[in-house]
């Protein structure tokens, strides 16, 4: 029983990170229609920005984290300006290949800069643990879950209660109509990219202490976030959260109760099952035309 609780919390923590990555992925997809194949590298970038700020520069926690978010926001804005804006009128495939190209570039720049040895990104709660129902749970895992829950709440508030968020949703649904409501579409699209990059950065900072910071970590995360979006319902925010947590739990519980060699097979097998039986996912909506 104590094992199960421990695994459950670890799965929840890993799932929260997948959920953050998937939310960033979904925000960009629903606002701009771009399937961002570099989204895993965004998370890797967040982790390595953390390595630079906390390990290399030795900044204190608060300053280091803040610096990572500033870097991620600038990166998101840059991605919007250098990739999305020039390619926005090109065919979808061109845009997708553009994101793939940037992803490969990022991975290799990271390899040049940091080498192939993995790092261990520290957590402010390193070494602390909580005893719960006879299980020993790392404080970092609990923090990951709490931070993600808080962030999801904030994100909901942003999208449903603030004019900027309502504007972002309007842009995601119909850009022309949004322009005619006086909305500055480009500014709101840039915000979507910035928000996605910030979420990825946070995911990277939270994931770093759980995994090793490895320049090849982006691809598995992207695949998991993608699986999470499919299981939850492509384009749906609650779906991204539920899907992310589902994939995280499946991975951790599957690895320990079924087979650690097949943990990915289980997660992706379920994704394929969803594609076959319920392609709209858990929270899927009817496909709508975008204007």
């Amino acid at each position: 029983m104590s094992d199960l609780i421990q695994l459950f919390v670890n799965g929840l923590a890993l799932g929260s990170v997948y959920a953050l990555a998937a939310i960033g992925f979904v925000i960009v997809y629903s606002a701009t229609g771009v399937v961002n194949f570099a989204s895993g590298q965004f998370v890797m970038f967040g982790t390595f920005a953390g390595v630079s700020m906390l390990l290399d520069a030795g900044l204190p926690w608060a300053v280091g984290y803040l610096a990572v978010f500033v870097v991620m926001a600038v990166f998101g804005a840059g991605f919007f300006a250098c990739l999305y804006l020039p390619l926005r009128k090109s065919p979808v495939a061109t845009m997708i290949i553009g994101t793939v190209a940037i992803g490969i570039l990022m991975q290799n720049v990271a390899l040049l800069a940091f080498g192939s040895w993995p790092f261990r990104l520290p957590s402010p709660l390193d070494g602390l643990s909580v005893h719960m129902f006879g299980a020993v749970i790392s404080a970092h895992a609990l923090m990951v879950v709490a931070v993600t829950a808080l962030l999801v709440g904030l994100l909901w508030f942003l999208l449903h209660r603030t004019p900027v968020g309502i504007g972002m949703r309007a842009v995601a649904q119909d850009m022309r109509a949004a322009r005619l409501m006086g909305l500055e579409v480009n500014r709101l699209l840039a915000l979507s990219w910035i928000l996605a990059a910030l979420l990825a950065g946070l995911a990277g900072l939270l994931l770093g202490p759980m995994w090793f910071a490895d320049v090849n970590m982006g691809d598995p995360i992207a695949l998991k976030a993608f699986a999470a979006s499919i299981i939850g319902g492509f384009g749906s925010l609650p779906g991204a959260i539920a899907g992310g947590i589902f994939v995280g739990l499946t991975e951790v519980l599957g690895a320990s109760y079924i087979s650690s060699a097949y943990k990915d097979l289980i997660a992706f097998g379920i994704m394929i099952l969803f594609l076959l039986v319920r392609p709209q996912g858990l929270f899927g909506e009817r496909i709508q035309d975008r204007g």
């Binding site: 949703r169 309007a170 649904q173 109509a177 949004a178 006086g182 204007g291």
Partner: peptide, 27 residues
Amino acid sequence: IGRTFQHGRLFSRMSVLENVMTAAETC
């Protein structure tokens, strides 16, 4: 300058109030 469309182009996944708020905010 305000304009409506031939085929209504409301933000279909938002409430009536949210739809109207978009313009109320920017203008």
